[in-house]
Structure formats: C-alpha cells, structure tokens
Design a protein around this nucleic acid. Structure first.
Ligand SMILES: [Mn+2]
Ligand SMILES: [Mn+2]
Ligand SMILES: [Mn+2]
Ligand SMILES: [Mn+2]
Lengths: 216, 216
DNA sequence: TATATTTTTTAGGTTTGCCTAAATTTTAAT
DNA sequence: ATTAAAATTTAGGCAAACCTAAAAAATATA
C-alpha cells in the first residue's frame, strides 16, 4: 500500500464519524488538501482493491478490510506520537507532523517492539486511544466541555484539534490531560464559558470548549 | 529532496571510495537494483541541482554540497540503526532494512533529539562512525582480517557486509564488535585463516576475512 | 588500424498521484 | 416543474521514477 492510499484510508476513517452515510469527494479532498477529482480517482482504486464501498455521487465508506487497514496506520501514528512525547523532548503540538511521516514505515516487528518499549500505552499524548494489533479500539465515554453545565466537573481526557496553535494555547493556560475543569458559568450570547482549573479562573471561547474532551 | 534522490546520493557516496574518478551508471544502477538508463536520468537531475559533477560517459562524483547531503542521510541511517539495536530488541542483521526507510524521515529536531536520547553515540551497531550534524566523520584506522599475518592480534571494530546471512554467521560464531581475534595460520591455496576468538579456534574463509574490520 | 564488444545515452512508454477545465449529475430555489 | 447552483465525474495533462529497445560512444580484440 502506498503512502497516499494509506492517507486516504485514514482520512475516510476519521471523516466517517461525521459523515456516516458516505464521505463525499469534496469533504475528503478538503481534508487532505487535494482536489475532488483526485479524490475520485483514489476512491475508485481503493474500491477496486476491495477496501472501500464507493457509489458514484454517493460518497465512500470503508469496508471492514479498509477499516482494519486504517486502524493499523492510526495505531502506528499514535505509538510514534507517544514515543516522541515520552522518550524524546517533543511537546504535544510538535508530534503530529512527524508522526504523519513515521506512520508509513513498514515493519510489523518495529511497531511491536515500539509498543513494548513504551510499556503498551493505552492512549497517545492527545488522549486518543491506541488500537491494538487487531485494530480494536476502546472508545471512552467522553463529552465536550461545551456540553457541560454550570456546576459540572470534568477531567480533561483529550482534544479534538491537534493544530499547533490550539495545543500551544492549552499549554499557556496550563490545561493538560488530567486537568480538572469546574464549569462556573456560561455566557448566553456567545456560549463562552468561565471555568476553574487549578484554582485559576479563565474564560474559554465556544470554539475552545468544543475542542476539549472531558470525562465527567 | 525525494527518497529516490537521497538514495542515489547515498549510493554515490558509498561507491566513490572504490571508484574515485567517477561512478559509472552501470555500477550505480547495479548497486541500487535499477537500470543504467534510470541512473543516467537521475544523475542529470542531481547535476542540474548542483549536487554532483556529471560528465557524459565519464561517471559521476559528488560535489561538496552533495557529499554533505549524503552524510546527513548516513547520519540518520546510523542513528536509527543504533536506536533499533540498543533501545528495541533488534539484532544487528535486522536493523539495516528498517533504517533504510527511517533515514528518509524529514525533521531536524527528531534527529537531534534521537542523538541525545541515544547518548550521542560515535558508532552504529556495525562499527561504522556516525557523522556529526555538519557531516564530519572520524575515520578509524582499520584493517581487514585478511591483511593480518599469523601472530597478529586484532580487535573487531566493524564489518564490510551487512547482509543478514553474513551477520547471522558472525552471531553463530560469537564474533561481535570488541571480539579479540588472534591469527594462527593462513592456508596458502585458498587464503582461509585459522583464528582464535574467546579461546575457541575456528576457520574463516577468505570472503569472511575480507569482510571483518579490526583495529590492530 | 579495423572490427567487435561493451558501456552509456537517447527515445519512447508505463504507473502513480496530482492538476485544470469541461461535462454530467444531484440538489436547491424559484 | 423548471431553472439555477453546487457537487461530482470525466477527459486530457504533467512530473517523478521507473522500464525496454535502439542509437551512439568508448573500449577491447584481432
Ligand atoms: Mn496526530
Ligand atoms: Mn500520513
Ligand atoms: Mn545500514
Ligand atoms: Mn534509503
């Protein structure tokens, strides 16, 4: 499987949650920063290989074999992210881009040994679960901060946006995995929230509250 | 720089020692398992980029900029080999192929951090020196076992053949970096040598003695 | 030196993954 | 139900990296 095929599979997997009845070439190409025509081509090829189900004009969904392939790449991506953050001095906003390259290295032994070396981690540095060798993922019960109400308390377990700018913002605000977030109040007009973290009060925009996941 | 360009530069660097006045497209393509016509094409491109000096029919040699690029890839290759052997449970005959992929990952920070994590190693698991960030290599005084005479003593510091079959042979014979080799006798007709290693006598073929490097 | 052999280059193709522009289909708006 | 707009596919191209076969140059042999 080529790098490009792997990236398409991984992207379809990610987009399927939001588009369960079919990921359109438009959405897919936007996500991958290519053009719809390129997505159509690639989807056709993946369909011929039996990895996806494609109906012209109806979008694409992964077949089981395609989902397993996608999860293997996601497993590699998250193990490498864990390596970069835990063993090397990478911060959580720096790891994604490098893992985007490392995830395509082909060696079953490498990924087994890496997993062992890292102590069989269950989650990557952004709080996302690491699939096992067969592609099984334990999906956590999680809510967005935006779904909480004043008085609620949540523990940060992940983020929904791995852009450098957002992760650096969280660093500045001392928000990390495990941070306990108390919801104090919600502004009616813009849905921004006042919260307390480590005895510090701060205001989070709606965008921010939608990108932070908590366990309640 | 593409993977392919990097592989060509690295190959030219390796072959230059044996072909100082120019690496032919024939030699180069054989080394890379491609065809001479493909080598000609690539060499032309590298020449246009100012990385090599190419005279039609006269072979190719690296310019300074090309040598620096090659050494950066070699540095990455050897650091990754060291990681696989020292941190993960890879044996020295398994590391080369995976490092051949890892060497192409683009991230200056990654390689700096990896170097730090490994404790700034000076040599890879095959005994080859690891170039520094500027591409400086310390070249060791070394001889092939085949160049020694009865009575000589050498310490194994490297090998000239990283094929699995050869490295597994060395493993079986308990020959590794640091092994002290006493030359006992040389057969006239086939240049095979009887040597002593760790109080064990054994016979090495000429091929073997030419592929083991020692410090005397 | 003339001829034969080998090496190297050139010419023309193929595959992968991308693109733009045009045609088609679907969806939304009158 | 028509028509307008948007999404999607098709058609035709391009660049990278490979290939085979033919032409050209260099080298070896007679
Ligand atoms: Mn990531
Ligand atoms: Mn990727
Ligand atoms: Mn190697
Ligand atoms: Mn390589």
């Amino acid at each position: 499987m080529t790098f490009s095929e792997e990236n398409y599979l991984k992207s379809i997997y990610a987009l399927q949650k939001e588009h369960p009845k079919g990921v359109s070439t438009n959405v897919l190409s936007k996500y991958l920063d290519t053009k719809p025509a390129s997505a159509t081509e690639m989807i056709k090829k993946l369909d011929e290989k039996g990895l996806v189900h494609y109906q012209p004009y109806q979008g694409v969904i992964l077949k089981d074999s395609g989902a397993v392939s996608a999860l293997k790449i996601i497993r590699k991506h998250r193990l490498w992210e864990t390596f970069l953050a835990n063993k090397l001095d990478f911060s959580w906003d720096e790891i994604h881009d490098v893992a985007e390259q490392l995830e395509h290295i082909k060696s079953d032994k490498l990924i087994r040994e890496l997993d062992k070396f890292l102590g069989y981690p269950k989650h990557d540095p952004h709080g996302d679960p690491i699939p096992d060798e067969e592609g099984n993922v334990v999906k956590m019960e999680k809510k967005r901060v935006s779904q909480l109400n004043p008085g609620d308390i949540g523990t940060c377990i992940g983020v929904n946006d791995t852009s450098s700018s957002f992760l650096q913002f969280l660093d500045q605000q001392n928000i990390r995995l495990g941070s306990v977030i108390h919801i104090l109040s919600v502004q009616e007009f813009d849905k921004s929230m006042t919260v307390r973290i480590d005895d510090r009060e701060l205001l989070l925009s709606q965008i921010a509250t939608e990108h932070i996941y908590v366990r309640v």
